[in-house]
Design a protein around this nucleic acid. Structure first.
Length: 287
DNA sequence: CCGGTCACCTGAGTGC
DNA sequence: TGCACTCAGGTGACCG
């Protein structure tokens, strides 16, 4: 379930390990994993050099120099996507379990010269674009800014212009990019706000508090290489921030602040965790 | 515009 | 031991 800190870790590991490498060959073992044209995917990426790997919301963004100009590969890992290094598969039986695509890289030892995209549930998608196609796709996505890039004024306007419940609005990637189920629950606990609060009724102190807590929690999680609950690790291993979760995955356990049992409910179709005592209405001015 | 539901998939966990 | 069942969350599509 990679969210912002996990994708940041994955991208930064990839940048270290495969940055500067040239793709000698591309193989796809499950066609649907490539959501842009498959022939063009092969054509754009084969022979291209990976200049850098960064994060865009929850997308992993490979910037490459292709044979005919700049190329971008965007990867969305959805629930169970991972990148791994291994040996190039010569036959179908050589593919590691659940791997869906392989990129053979030049200049690495043969036993580790291939970047695999692994995805148990096959929800993730890879796309390759030239500059114009990228621009078009990004416009279509309409991602909002990261919490780290967001001005408090802008954040207030974005949240209060939505009529939905706070949890759903924070999960909307067009409002703010990078938050997922885990960090929204943690952030709302830290902010003392109920997930079911109407976003449009929030005060300026409310939205300031949410932004501050989101930045604090996300930064701490990035430092811990993210949260490993299941099916997440970077090239250099998993994270440890799950140990710092206060409410996510802790239904029935005592709230670390007041001791009340953490409640689990469904909000916007997502499992939602909150403390019924610490999370109440909106904050008052000056709090 | 908004909420609810389903589809996309597989594995882990639970209860009988 | 095995089987049926539920659940996990990111996103897009669809309906009311």
């Amino acid at each position: 379930m990679p969210e912002l800190p996990e994708v940041q870790t994955i991208a930064s590991d990839l940048d270290d390990v495969v940055g500067g490498k040239t793709i000698a060959a591309v193989a796809v073992s499950f066609d649907k994993i490539v959501a842009s044209d498959l022939n063009r995917f092969h054509k754009l990426l084969t022979g291209a050099t990976i200049d850098s790997v960064t994060r865009l919301g929850k997308w992993v963004c490979f910037s490459l120099s292709g044979t005919e100009g700049p190329v971008t590969m965007l990867a969305h890992l959805k629930m169970t996507g991972q990148f791994h290094l291994g040996a190039w598969p010569e036959g179908e039986s050589d593919w590691p379990p659940h791997t869906r695509a392989a990129f053979r890289l030049k200049g690495l030892p043969a036993e580790n010269d291939t970047l695999f995209y692994k995805d148990i549930r096959k929800f993730g998608r890879l796309r390759a674009f030239d500059l114009m196609e990228l621009e078009e796709f990004l416009e279509h996505l309409g991602l909002g800014p990261d919490p780290f890039d967001m001005e408090p004024d802008d954040f207030y306007k974005r949240l209060t212009s939505k009529k939905g419940r706070l949890k759903s609005v924070l999960l909307n990637q067009q409002v703010v990019a990078g938050l997922g189920n885990i960090y929204v629950d943690e952030c709302l606990f830290a902010s003392g706000l109920l997930p079911t609060t109407s976003a449009c009724k929030l005060s300026r102190p409310d939205t300031d508090r949410i932004l501050t807590e989101a930045r604090r929690i996300l930064a701490a999680s990035i430092k811990a290489r993210g949260s490993t609950t299941s099916n997440y690790e970077g090239l250099k291993g998993g994270g440890s921030f799950q140990k710092s979760h206060n409410v996510y995955g802790r239904a029935g356990e005592p709230c670390p602040v007041c001791g009340s049992p953490i409640e689990k409910s469904v909000v916007g179709g997502r499992g939602t965790h909150h403390c019924p005592h610490c999370q109440r209405g909106r904050l008052k001015s000056g709090e």
